[in-house]
Design a protein around this nucleic acid. Structure first.
Length: 687
RNA sequence: GCUGCUGUAGCUCAGUGGUAGAGCACGUCCUUGGUAAGGACGAGGUCACGGGUUCAAGUCCCGUCAGCAGCUCCA
């Protein structure tokens, strides 16, 4: 006799198993009409799911646009839309084999194996969408049919899809007693798919959908397995929701750092220079330099020593550190010493053999550095260290080179040569906690100055069941506790992730949220017991005996390339004045006022402002349009009236025309804004 | 690396087998203009690169390189 407890705490008793249609109908006609599914003891179910015993039940409705924090309704809509799309694709492309089609955070996809002579492209979308509209218009019910294991498996054997058989085997392995199919309409005549569900009551409840893209994927995510075609789409209960989603995608495209970077001449990636290798144009170089100076000033104030190290080192260094040849796949190939090449050529060494020797690491030469730590370790080790010297904090904006797969490269956010805000702290074990907190606090300060106030940290811990971690478990426990402590005392949200530690120590990752709510993974802080061991580092303790220091790697912003890419998108190219490549532009009303304008430029240059003069023979309207498109923070319009009164007429980005301001007062204001690294008002509000 | 799409002027793009185009930017001239594009004229291209098909290729085919979306990867 099920007792159904509703979210408001009230309950209804039934004397027989009951489904959601009955429950919703008992509550009210309007609720029934809006109902699309159930949540039974936290699990999403079909609206028609039969509840046989006492349960907590809430009814999922297509509901109002804001009223679905759990996205349960979207889950149902999207999952069902994936089925509708699959049916449509099978109609359009006979012989397509379905593999797997789940909903995702933003929509859904279906992985499909196409006949060898057929591929799918976005040109096929209109035909598929047409079929989907028909299926939705028919408003066919989703019906669930369950079979026992044997019966279900034999049905699948008859159908003969190895992918679906595999799905079923996995479901059974995961403990499922039965297999279920969903039929879109009538069993035997309409389309069906092996599926765990749940689904909408009928296809007509899909209010709006759109196919978005096509990509390839691998069966089981395994690159050596079958290659599948993945079709992406998204779906909502209401057309207005879809439109808002598409608007958001448009907003993200407008902020694309690759587009803005090109338009504002911040950086270039030139194919003759190489994939993933960034050329910083003068404008982008200003942003980077300002950021470097800002971070450097905080590093120095926090007790770091700045160092410089070369971009290459001998392979031996990386044999000691373990980077070569172990991580060979993600490094640029070694630079082989000329003497070495000559010598093995004399021996008659073939290319194949040379390649093999590189693979096993038995070559002599140099390598572009994939990490800065070995160099910093050598600087630590250059002096005899005592416990009184610790912690030693060595910082460098160190450029490293990594051979990212070509498909991974993306603007500034994934590149092959990049400069980290890197530092290595050598300390005693007792100092680890305090040093971790110092790293996090420094990052917090920098992020808040840039208006990136919304972020969280992830603490990566070891999986105690695994054997891949090196070092003393007791020491691991202490280091993990120190990471937890540091993260929690920072006062920002943090999550712990077991199994995410590096093999050599636990770590803390930064994830920031930008102006439109997207999350970006920045850098990490990592505790390392491995490298001090490999390089046999030591310090003399107060007991006059030798001890092993602990190392902390920290690059909280990751790299300048990625960080600036994120900043470009965060600010939509409208940098705060202190970072803006061009901070002000003087716009004379006519050529008669160019001399006065030039005088203003000189005065601003004298106080360190980056300012230019627009002496083009254009009207002021045109000059403003051009400068506004370039997102210049201050436009100073000057004409006869200003010349007489010693003023500039200020147009401020984001505010508009502020009218005439005495030159001295404006200069004071601008200098103060830059010195204090103030944020533009708009950016602050949005965060 | 894999799949799909794309590569034409500095930028954004049109051009589907028959004499390379537009807008912006750039140059010259006219205009001397008070808050989001005044006007005229001009210069600018090995149509990514290499092969092939064809009387004829920016256009069709193959390969290479590069970009984009996703997959996989990210010490």
């Amino acid at each position: 006799m099920p007792r159904i407890t509703l979210p408001d705490g009230s309950h209804r008793d039934y004397d027989a198993p009951v489904d959601g249609i009955r429950i919703a109908g008992d509550i009210g006609e309007r609720l029934l009409k809006a109902s699309i599914g159930l949540k039974v003891d936290g699990e999403i179910r079909d609206l028609g799911h039969l509840i046989e015993s006492d349960a907590q039940v809430s009814i999922i409705t297509s509901g109002s646009k804001k009223d679905d924090p759990e996205q349960d309704a979207l889950f149902l809509v999207r999952h069902s839309c994936a089925h509708v799309m699959a049916e449509a694709i099978e109609r359009v492309v006979p012989g397509a084999e379905l593999v797997y089609g789940p909903p995702t955070d933003m929509g859904f996809y279906y992985d499909i194996r196409f006949p060898v002579d057929r591929t799918l492209s976005s040109e096929d979308f209109p035909a598929i969408e047409e079929q989907m509209k028909e299926i939705i218009a028919e408003d066919r019910p989703f019906r669930r049919y369950q079979f026992g294991r044997e019966e279900g498996m034999s049905k699948l054997q008859d159908e003969g899809s190895k992918y679906k058989i595999d799905n079923a085997e996995r479901a059974i392995e995961a403990g499922s007693d039965e297999l279920s199919w969903y039929v879109t309409g009538e069993l035997g005549t309409d389309w069906e798919d092996l599926c765990r569900g749940p689904h909408l009551p009928s296809t007509g409840r899909i209010g709006a959908f759109k196919l978005l893209s096509v990509a390839s994927s691998y069966w089981h995510g395994d690159a050596s397995s079958d290659s599948l075609t993945r079709v992406y789409g998204t779906a909502f209960s209401f057309p207005a929701q879809l439109q808002r989603h598409l608007d958001q995608l448009e907003e993200a495209r407008r902020r694309d750092h690759r587009v803005i970077g090109k338009k504002q001449n911040l950086f270039r990636i030139d194919e003759e220079v190489g994939q993933g290798l960034v050329l910083w144009q003068p404008g982008g170089a200003v942003v980077r330099r300002e950021l470097e100076e800002f971070i450097r000033s905080h590093l120095i104030a926090s007790g770091y020593d700045m160092v410089y190290t070369p971009h290459v080192a001998k392979l031996d260094l990386y044999r000691t550190s373990g980077h070569f040849p172990y991580y060979r796949e993600s490094q640029f190939p070694p630079l082989l010493a000329a003497e070495f090449l000559d010598a093995i050529a004399d021996e008659g060494c073939s290319c194949a053999e040379l390649s093999h020797r590189i693979g096993e690491g038995s070559v002599e030469g140099f390598m572009l550095k994939p990490m800065n730590c070995p160099h910093h370790i050598k600087i630590y080790d250059a002096e005899a260290r005592s416990y009184r010297d610790l912690p030693v904090r060595l910082a460098e904006f160190g450029t490293v080179y990594r051979w990212e797969q070509s498909g991974e490269l993306n603007g500034l956010t994934r590149v092959r040569g990049f400069t980290q805000d890197d530092a290595h702290i050598f300390c005693t074990e007792d100092q680890v906690g305090e040093e971790l907190l110092g790293c996090l606090s420094l990052a917090k300060l920098v992020l808040s100055t840039l208006g990136l106030e919304d972020y969280r940290v992830r603490v990566g811990l070891r999986d105690t069941d695994s054997t891949k971690y090196i070092g003393d478990p007791a020491r691991w426990d202490r280091a993990e506790e120190a990471c937890r402590q540091a993260a929690s005392s920072l006062g920002v949200p943090y999550v712990e992730e077991v199994g995410e530690a590096a093999f050599y120590g636990p770590k803390i990752d930064f994830v920031v949220k930008d102006a439109i709510g997207r999350e970006w993974q920045l850098g990490t802080v990592q505790v390392d017991y491995n490298l001090p061991e490999r390089f046999d580092l030591s310090y003399t303790g107060s007991d006059n005996s030798s001890h092993r220091p602990v190392m902390i790697h920290r690059a909280p912003f990751g790299s300048f390339e990625r960080f600036i890419g994120i900043l470009i998108e965060h600010f939509e190219g409208a940098f705060p004045t202190w970072l803006a490549p061009e901070q002000a532009r003087v716009l004379p009303i006519s050529m008669k006022h160019v001399d006065y304008a030039r005088g203003i430029v000189d005065r601003l240059v004298a106080v360190g402002i980056r300012v230019t003069l627009d002496d083009s023979d254009e009207r002021v309207n045109a000059k403003i349009k051009v400068a506004a498109d370039e997102r210049i923070p201050y436009l100073l319009v000057v004409g006869g009236r200003d010349e007489e009164a010693e003023t500039v007429s200020v147009r401020q980005r984001g505010i508009g025309d502020r009218g005439a301001i005495p030159v001295d007062a404006f200069i004071d204001e601008l200098v103060a804004e830059v010195r204090e690294r103030r944020l533009p008002m708009a950016a602050k509000e949005e965060v």
